[in-house]
Design a protein around this nucleic acid. Structure first.
Lengths: 177, 177
DNA sequence: GACAGACATATCGTAGTGATATATCGTCAC
DNA sequence: GTGACGATATATCACTACGATATGTCTGTC
């Protein structure tokens, strides 16, 4: 079975209930996009491909003149999801412009370099607010592991802000010494 | 001035000294790739483009029959680097398959889901070893901020492994309750 | 009844990836 | 000294992904 970057996220979301391509994109943008993004340009072709392979089943369910095709997971699709969940491939890619700036910060005067750290700290704090707002959203509580991943985001940004603060102190006192 | 994803990393590395495209790729693979990757397919065209814009200067310096073109930063290029360093754009993109697995882990039996957390912890520990090996490399110490970013990688992975451990405990005791 | 905004699918230009082709050089073994 | 192999060096190409937007429909509301 062919695997692309969106395969698992499509299968995983359909496992939580039948959805259209549009629905998938909406849910992704509100949840996994923080660590796994997906675009229409990937989702729609992928749904077609997965249907050809028999992992999902589509059903036209237009509402009036507006077309809508809802997909559900087949047993084979559920198996493919579990196989992936138990698999051992690990993709980790990070693209962090703020770290890249820090990396080259020796080209700046001391004070301006420290301001990069201040900026990074602020970035973590702002991100934190966004995630806390999501956590505080009304509605039934998230499933255990969905909640766990949200926690990760919150804990990570707390850690990140603290780290910046510690390094600022270290670099300031070291300079004074 | 047009900006692509590799512009800052090329300018930044040339600021540390003249280099060929091959050199840039080698240094990237040993350092920034952890948070900012770059491929030949980006680097060579980018060097040409930056030369046309007058931000870098190339000089053919073949050794024997083997061609080699070494680039150096122009004053305009240095200015462009400083402008970017002081800029406020923030790109943060994360693609973390292990988090995606956790997100969908409610589809697994409790024990197997916990094993995903164990696996993630192990991933952090392995990454940690790689980074510690880099830190222990002989040679003159890295510039302050280059070292700072390496520290970040180490501290982050230590934090990540600890976080997994804490969540494992929490989920285990909660289940028992 | 008009307008904004959500719903839904589809597509397209641009850019990035990873692999590989081509060629030279250094060095180590035998 | 020659053959093999890996490092140096540039270039390119097929494939994939991304982000933005075109197109059209429906719903709520002022």
């Amino acid at each position: 079975m062919k695997q692309t970057a969106v395969t698992p996220v499509v299968l995983g979301l359909l496992a939580l209930g039948p959805r259209s391509g549009y629905d998938i994109k909406t849910v992704v943008d509100r949840s996994t996009r923080f660590f796994w993004a997906a675009s229409y340009g990937q989702i729609y072709p992928e749904l077609k491909r997965l249907e050809e392979e028999g992992l999902v089943e589509g059903e036209d369910r237009p509402s009036g003149g507006r077309s809508r095709r809802v997909y559900r997971l087949t047993p084979a699709g559920h198996q493919a999801l579990v196989d992936w969940l138990l698999g051992s491939t690990v993709t980790i890619e990070l693209r962090d412009e703020s770290l890249l700036r820090l990396f080259f910060a020796d080209a700046l005067p001391h004070e301006q370099a420290l301001q990069l750290l201040e900026g990074r700290k602020r970035g973590h704090q702002e991100y934190l607010e966004v995630l806390r707002a999501i956590q505080a959203l009304p509605g039934e509580p998230d499933p255990t592991y969905v909640d766990l991943v949200l926690r990760w985001g919150i804990d990570f940004n707390e850690w990140g802000a603290r780290w910046c603060e510690e390094q600022l102190e270290r670099l300031r006192t070291r300079k004074a010494a």
